[in-house]
Structure formats: structure tokens, C-alpha cells
Computed example of a mutant assay.
Amino acid sequence: MSLDIPCDVQAPPLVARLVERHGARWVDAANVAAVTAEPGDLVLFFSGDPVRFPECLDVAVVLPELQAAFPGRFAVGVVVPTDEDAVARRYGMQRWPSLVFLRDGRYVTAIAGMLDWTDYVARVAEALDLPATRAPTIGIAVVSADAAPSCH
């Protein structure tokens, strides 16, 4: 996978810097399955449009500091802006900017928006200790063919 930003994508310099200087990887709709299938903890950064969500630039600056506060605990993937909506649907993510935590390819939790440093550190520590779970996406209820009718 190339770490170069695709030529047709315009990412804000502070977001692109995550890949260029801090070892993050670009994630798009084409490679998200492969990237997220790798073992370990991964944080996907959904920056959003910096005009609509100016705090995304703050999160882009804080994210390497969070990674340094938890050395070796998680890798970072930066979702390319043009594919954010498609990738966000996989994880039920509806707020920008957001950090989506995955472990061994499975959803763990998400942290949306910009937080105070102490709150971020506490929330990231909590996320790294949580078990993987089902992403909060729209699901289809499964009912057994032999289930008794019930209101509940």
C-alpha cells in the first residue's frame, strides 16, 4: 500500500502530516478491509471537512501526542477525505472528526470531537482496555423460524 496521498485527494496539511511525518497510513474504500484486518490496535482518523469541522485540525495535531502517550499501543490510519462517508458506514460513525478504535479488525469504540487533554488520555486508555464488540451499524434482526410469538 502506498503512503502517498492519492493525487485527486486534497487533505489539509495537518492531516497529511500524520502520514508524512508520524507513520500513519492512508486508508480508503479500496484498502480498508486489508488494513483493518491486520492484527493489533488501530485508530482510524476521520477528519471531515476543516471548514465545517475546524476542530479536525486540532485532533490531527493531538493524535501523534496521544500515540506518544501510549507508546506502541496503536497504529493510526487516516481515512482519505473522499472515502470518509463510505468507510464511516462500516463502523456506524456519524460525527466528524472521530477516532474509531479497532482491534484485530473488530470495532472497539469511537471518540468524536475534540476533547481536553486529560479527557482524551482517559478515553484512549479506556478504549485500549475495552473488548472488541459489534460496530453500531444498522443491522437486520434475525428471528428463529421456531420462535414463539411475543411482544418482547
Rank of each mutant, 00 (worst) to 15 (best):
P71D: 13
L57G: 08
N31Y: 02
C56P: 07
A69H: 15
L57I: 07
T82I: 07
R103E: 04
P149T: 07
D28E: 09
T118E: 14
V79E: 04
F74G: 08
A33V: 10
E55D: 14
V80L: 15
Y107I: 05
F46Q: 00
A88K: 06
G48I: 01
F74M: 07
L128A: 07
D104R: 03
A16Q: 15
V78I: 10
V100P: 01
H22K: 01
D58C: 12
G139F: 02
L63P: 02
A132Q: 07
A125N: 15
R52I: 02
A148C: 02
V124Q: 09
R90K: 08
A88H: 01
F46A: 02
Y120A: 04
A24Y: 00
I5K: 09
D85L: 14
P136E: 11
G113D: 06
D119G: 10
P12R: 00
R25F: 08
Y91F: 15
S144P: 00
A122S: 15
L57T: 06
R106W: 02
V87W: 01
E20W: 04
V108P: 00
P39K: 07
I5C: 14
L14D: 13
T109N: 05
P131Y: 08
A127I: 05
V87C: 09
A110G: 05
P6M: 08
M93P: 00
R73S: 15
F74E: 08
A29P: 03
P131G: 09
P131A: 14
Y107Q: 00
S98F: 06
V108S: 07
P39V: 03
V121P: 06
D116C: 02
S98E: 04
M93K: 05
R90Y: 00
A125H: 15
I140L: 11
G92H: 06
L14H: 01
P131W: 04
I140Y: 04
L44Q: 06
A135K: 02
R103S: 00
E126Q: 15
V142P: 02
M114L: 12
R52Q: 14
L66V: 09
P13Q: 11
W117T: 09
Y120K: 04
T109F: 08
D119Q: 14
A24D: 04
V76E: 06
R17D: 15
D119P: 01
G23R: 07
R106G: 11
D4S: 14
F45D: 05
V15W: 00
D28L: 08
F101V: 03
V27C: 11
T36K: 00
